[in-house]
């Protein structure tokens, strides 16, 4: 199976391991990630304002590139996923916006949001299947009590993201089960870590991150997994008592390819 892949800036710099493990694991699972040529930064955050057009063009270009190859578009970073999926949704539902974008980009055929966007986790669930992952696990993470940290961007706004129940999600928990570990459910898994406000108000980010990590630790978690580099940064920087790792790293470990990944 071949899919278009949008790694995003952070995965090329501060979160190279998130990217490297994702590529290696995809190989093992029989998925070819074809990196989009000349992709551009998604901007990190989606503007809900209907008159913000220029800032969304890079996402549309990525979507269009996948569409030209008739492939679904896969992202790993939660932020890229959120921006690209919301942009795609706006292309589908906001005719005035789509018209402006198409006039500006002047593609051969207008783009109308046809590309199917998957987060890597959704790819595991819907295209590969957690059952198949279970079969491929050679190093089951038995006994590990792992807390899934969704944060905001994977789940919300639910009307657009449609990944899972935004208040009672299970996709990462199912992933954790698939690699043989035990998920720890805790209420703050879908609360914000502080996000980009860490730049402006590190105290606010600290307060929010601590609330999340202490809630996970109190629930008995020994480790947290996330898909978002900024979440991981905030949680770790603000002194999480328990390690915070990318889900792709855990997957690589379970699939037995962690060591030979050049991360």
């Amino acid at each position: 199976m071949k899919v278009s892949y949008f790694p995003g800036c952070t995965l090329k710099t501060k979160a190279k391991d998130l990217d490297a493990y994702a590529r290696k694991c995809a190989e093992v699972l029989g998925v070819t990630l074809e990196e989009i040529e000349n992709w551009q930064c998604c901007g990190g955050v989606f503007s809900t304002s209907r008159d913000e057009v220029a800032t969304k063009l890079s996402s549309v270009r990525a979507l269009k590139a996948a569409n030209d190859k008739e492939q679904p578009l896969v992202t790993v970073c939660s932020a890229c996923h959120n921006v690209i999926k919301q942009t795609n949704h706006q292309m589908q539902t906001d005719a005035e916006f789509a018209d402006k974008v198409n006039r500006y980009m002047a593609p051969e055929a207008p783009y109308g949001g046809e590309t199917v966007v998957y987060h890597y986790l959704e790819m595991l669930r819907d295209l590969v299947g957690f059952d198949k992952i279970k079969e491929k696990v050679v190093n089951p993470q038995t006994g590990k009590k792992i807390a899934a940290y969704y944060g905001c961007l994977l789940l919300r706004p639910n009307k657009v993201m449609q990944m899972d129940d935004p208040e009672n999600p299970r996709i990462i928990e199912d992933f954790i089960r698939a690699i043989g570990a035990e998920p720890v459910i805790y209420a703050s898994r879908n609360e914000c870590c502080g996000g980009y406000v860490a730049m402006e108000s590190p105290e606010l980010a600290k307060k929010k991150s601590n609330a999340v990590t202490s809630n996970a630790a109190a629930a008995g978690a020994e480790m947290m997994v996330t898909a978002c580099p900024l979440c991981r940064y905030n949680l770790v920087k603000n002194g999480s008592e328990i390690p915070v790792v990318y889900f792709t790293e855990l997957l690589a470990d379970a699939l037995g390819v962690k060591e030979d990944t050049n991360a």
């Binding site: 995003g8 800036c9 952070t10 710099t13 501060k14 979160a15 930064c41 901007g43 990190g44 955050v45 970073c77 932020a79 996000g195 980009y196 860490a198 730049m199 978002c228 580099p229 900024l230 940064y233 770790v236 920087k237």
Partner: peptide, 9 residues
């Protein structure tokens, strides 16, 4: 350690 994502956002 601050990720690019925080800056662009």
């Amino acid at each position: 350690d601050i990720p690019q994502q925080a800056l662009v956002s």
